[in-house]
């Protein structure tokens, strides 16, 4: 068992997501940075889809009542065990009664914590992913709170030295532009609007959350911004009437009535999820063919570690 001493700002149990219900308006949810998620499970020898903790901006304080192996990936929040800094992207043996805490955020926005054996919470609608809007999944359908107990799966605490290969470790989340392709309503933008999208940097707003990254700068449309409600996918850049773009993430609603001007490519969703309020992002347009090739190359690297996420029929997203 792991005891939650402090919850952190927003810590949830997440897996790869909840599939098959988008046609009923149910978002997929699941981890936002799939790369860090997969690596965390790999470090401790878990199945690729085992649930982990997704930790946002400020880390929790956790007491381990059992000896386990853990892995910490994603944003660097300076993790410490019993006050001593520990290495990220590396399998760590944690002894009984140890305390895990986090320091100041050094880069990124979201940290992933895996535990050997995973978390023993029920699957709701085939997933352990927390979707708090519908009180679904995770621990009681909501973020962790101080005093919670996290039950663990069958723990195999046999320890194996493991480190994430250097080329898969993201040392910085701020240098690369976010790559996009044009969205279905790109043509509704004014000439100035189109220019602003690709020349201006955008600032991540403080109201950003698992539903979307809200950007602070205004982009102009030629015509009104209302349209017939239609589907949304992860990475859709929507332009509401305020003119301030929202990049929609895993907890976003499945349909919306605002122009979808861009879509962030699948390969860049993980890095997008690591942008925190105040960070600057830039969009760079690429072709569909290029976007898919980028994803293919990236997955090839993960496949080498047997970490390509395979989906059953109808379970793609």
């Amino acid at each position: 068992m792991i005891e939650v001493v402090k919850s952190g700002l927003y810590t949830t149990i997440q897996d790869v997501g909840r599939f098959g219900f988008q046609k009923y308006g149910m978002p997929v949810s699941g981890v936002l940075d799939k790369d860090a998620f997969r690596l965390a499970n790999w470090l401790v020898g878990n199945a690729i889809n085992e649930a982990v903790l997704e930790i946002t901006l400020t880390g929790p304080v956790l007491r381990f009542h059992k000896e386990v192996v853990i892995g910490i990936t994603g944003a660097d929040m300076q993790p410490k065990i019993d006050g001593k800094l520990v290495e990220m992207n590396s399998a760590i043996k944690v002894s009984k009664n140890s305390m895990l805490s986090f320091g100041k955020l050094k880069n990124g926005c979201r940290t992933y914590l895996s535990v050997s054996g995973g978390f023993d919470v029920v699957h709701e609608m085939n997933s352990k992913a927390t979707y708090d809007y519908a009180k679904l999944g995770g621990l009681n359908g909501q973020a962790l709170a101080a005093g919670d107990s996290l039950l663990l799966g069958n723990v195999d605490a046999s320890f194996e030295e493991k480190k994430v290969p250097v080329h898969l470790v993201q040392n910085s989340y701020s240098t690369m532009p976010v790559r996009v392709i044009e969205g279905p309503e790109f043509h509704l933008l004014s000439k100035a609007g189109k220019e602003v999208l690709f020349t201006c940097g955008f600032t991540v707003g403080s109201a950003s959350n698992r539903m979307g990254v809200r950007l602070n700068e205004v982009v102009e449309l030629d015509l009104g911004s209302e349209m017939i409600s239609s589907g949304i996918v992860q990475g859709t850049v929507q332009l509401p009437s305020s003119g301030m773009p929202i990049v929609l993430l895993a907890d976003a609603q499945t349909t919306g009535g605002y122009p979808r001007v861009l879509n962030v490519i699948k390969a860049d969703l993980s890095i997008l999820a690591q942008q925190k309020p105040g960070d600057k992002i830039r969009f760079r347009k690429i072709s569909l063919e290029k976007a898919q090739a980028v994803y293919y190359n990236k997955e090839t690297e993960f496949t080498k570690l047997a970490l390509h996420i395979e989906h059953k029929k109808r379970d793609l997203y």
Binding site: F19, I228, S229, S230, G231, T255, Q292, D315
Partner: peptide, 24 residues
């Protein structure tokens, strides 16, 4: 092959697909 979830609306259908299985 390669077709994933569908989201249908008043006038559109969004079709997820796995481009590693079927090209656009």
């Amino acid at each position: 092959v390669g077709v994933g979830e569908l989201i249908s609306s008043y006038n559109t259908v969004t079709v997820y697909y796995d481009f590693l299985q079927i090209p656009y």
